[in-house]
Amino acid sequence: MNKSIVTGVVLCGLMVLTSWTAQAVKPTTRLSDLHQKIVLADVIPTSFGGWTEDVNQVSAVINPQVDAEIKKIYAQTLSRTYVNKEGERIMLSIAYGTDQRDNLAVHYPEGCYGAQGFNVSPVHYESMSSRTGEIPATRLVASLNNRVEPITYWIVVGEKAVRNSWELKKARLSYALDGLIPDATLIRVSSINADSAVAYRLQQGFVDEMLAAVSPTMRAHFSGHAH
């Protein structure tokens, strides 16, 4: 049998097993109740490193339908635009949900931007360096008319950073087997720049300074290195 077919069958089987096990195991304890309460507006400073919040800017244009869907999924959201002394801007969006069971799942940026009419490039994965270790980041470019927006995001399920829905399901199952309902945090940074390489370098520096500015506990949480 063709190797790729065998691989596909195995992966399909694993996904079915994961789904069945998730239904069979009924976790009862929220992980969010076991650690320090997260209040995004308090734990993320409005100024850090060379960055200050630009209160005259919004971080993203969200249509009412998308905004309503996001509010169903997440307990908290934070959207800010930061500016440095060179006038460069970074848009930060963090969404935090306390319940990552099947009825509440991550709203991926590529779907969010696509729903707003943006052309969205294929995603690619990169290991992004941080002060607490490597972060498995996802990158893509969204464009609409003359607006070109390179985007970096990553997801933390409980205390584990994941890249995609498959890794998210595995992490969720791992917690379920321990009787835990994991929380989830999606961190997105983006900037308006037709040169994605330049944009990603700027975003890398921003993320590093942001992580340096939060408490050690929150730094570990946001980077997925709390375990």
Rank of each mutant, 00 (worst) to 15 (best):
H221I: 14
I94G: 00
E86A: 12
D102V: 10
P182S: 06
K170P: 00
T185K: 00
G50T: 11
K160M: 12
V39I: 15
L173Q: 13
V58M: 05
R201L: 09
V43C: 13
L144G: 00
Y96K: 02
A24P: 01
T52G: 02
K37H: 12
Q100P: 00
E159V: 10
Q36M: 11
Q100C: 01
N119S: 06
S79H: 11
W154H: 10
S130N: 03
S47P: 05
T52H: 08
N63R: 11
R219G: 15
A95S: 12
A212S: 14
S130R: 01
E69A: 14
Q65V: 15
S174I: 03
D54F: 01
I70H: 03
G49R: 00
N193V: 09
M1G: 14
W154G: 03
Q100R: 03
T46M: 07
K72P: 05
F48W: 07
V162H: 04
S47R: 14
H225Y: 05
A22H: 06
L144I: 10
G8M: 07
V157Y: 00
N164G: 14
K37Y: 05
E110S: 05
H221L: 15
S47Q: 15
M15I: 12
A22I: 04
A68H: 10
V55P: 03
G97M: 08
L211C: 04
I187T: 15
A171H: 04
P136G: 11
I44D: 08
T217E: 12
P64M: 08
W154T: 06
K3A: 13
S130W: 02
G117L: 12
P109N: 10
T28K: 11
A220E: 12
